[in-house]
């Protein structure tokens, strides 16, 4: 494992309300304030890269990495189009994007950079970058979430990011864009009456935030399959963001965790969390899933062992 300098990590929600309608509810306003706190932290840090892993950018052909130097468009969300448009123009660290691709490929992953005018950057990445880095003061990079990838592939992708950060001597802030529970209300609601969809979702979200608050990121990574089964709508094969985040940040529990906000976003759980590497730890747990360094692809069990 490489020795990367990751200044801190941010976990934040993909929904557009904190960007487009923070005044619509107290909760959206608190999330917006938490984004603002993170923005200041980044500004006051020595970061020279913001690396975004977005769960609202699905890919199929391996892992796609934004490689356009200045992607620019006006984005509209599929569900929340009535909240308004999201014009964006970002500054992408294209040299890092290429290095990330190279690192991913060297660990056995299919990966490619995408650099096309008009490429549709996803809602979650736009919300995060516009609120965390509004003046493009720091170059960014965005990586997709492959819809078929499971644990091994996602962990190797996180390690690839870490390799690339180390290889280029970057001081990076890692941003993971994801809800906690992701079940939204299926009808239109008054934002002032927004709440977490169910008591079960709320309870699990608070348990996850307890782990985040204690800096137990690797423990959350180990719990990902359980989280997926308990509170994630089954859109994709697994809840991956904790796998990727922990692998990218070094697979341990040694963080100072800060939960800056936890609020409902049309029923889903939205939290803004900061994890800063520290010396202290809640201790190592006994992890029962193998670590993986290199991705070897599907095992092809259908083709082996047949009579």
């Amino acid at each position: 494992m490489s020795d990367s300098e990751i200044l801190f990590g941010i976990y934040c929600p993909p929904h557009p309300q904190p960007l487009l309608s923070p005044e619509a509810s107290d909760g959206y306003g608190k999330l917006r304030d938490a984004f603002e706190t993170c923005r200041k932290r980044i500004e006051e840090s020595e970061a020279d890269l913001i690396l975004v892993y977005s769960t609202t950018w699905p890919s199929i052909i391996g892992h796609q990495i934004q490689g356009h130097p200045e992607p620019e468009w006006v984005h509209v969300d599929d569900d929340f189009h009535y909240l308004g448009s999201m014009p964006y123009k970002f500054k992408i660290d294209t040299e890092f994007a290429e290095k990330f691709r190279e690192s991913a490929e060297s660990r056995g992953l299919q990966s490619r950079t995408v650099a096309y005018d008009g490429f549709p950057i996803d809602t979650g990445s736009i919300v995060a970058l516009k609120l965390l880095n509004p003046d493009n003061r720091i170059p960014a990079c965005i990586v997709s979430s492959n819809m078929y990838a499971n644990r091994a592939e996602t962990i190797v992708l996180g390690k690839s990011a870490r390799d690339a950060i180390a290889a280029q001597g970057k001081k990076a802030v890692v941003v993971v864009v994801s809800s906690l529970s992701n079940r939204m209300f299926t009808e239109h609601i008054d934002p002032a009456e927004d709440r977490i969809h169910s008591a079960k979702d709320d309870e699990w979200n608070k348990k996850i935030l307890e782990f985040f608050g204690n800096g137990r990121l690797e423990d959350l990574s180990q719990l990902s399959r359980e989280i997926h089964g308990q509170i994630r709508v089954q859109k994709v094969v697994a809840y991956k963001p904790a796998w990727w985040m922990s692998a990218a940040m070094g697979q341990h529990n040694n963080y100072t965790g800060e939960v800056l906000a936890y609020e409902a976003l049309h029923g889903s759980g939205g939290a803004v969390v900061v994890l800063t590497p520290s010396k202290g730890s809640v201790g190592d747990k006994e992890f029962d899933e193998d670590d993986v360094e290199h991705y070897h692809g599907d095992r092809g069990v259908l083709d082996t062992g047949a009579l």
């Binding site: 699905p58 599929d78 005018d117 009808e187 239109h188």
Partner: peptide, 30 residues
């Protein structure tokens, strides 16, 4: 590929003119 979770939505303006880039196969479709 217009996925909504809050009900069913319908296009409601007479004209749309722009460029559609496939997020999965941008190398093929712009």
């Amino acid at each position: 590929h217009w996925q909504t979770y809050i009900g069913t939505h319908f296009l409601g303006l007479p004209k749309f003119k722009s460029k559609s880039v496939d997020p999965v196969f941008p190398n093929l479709f712009r």
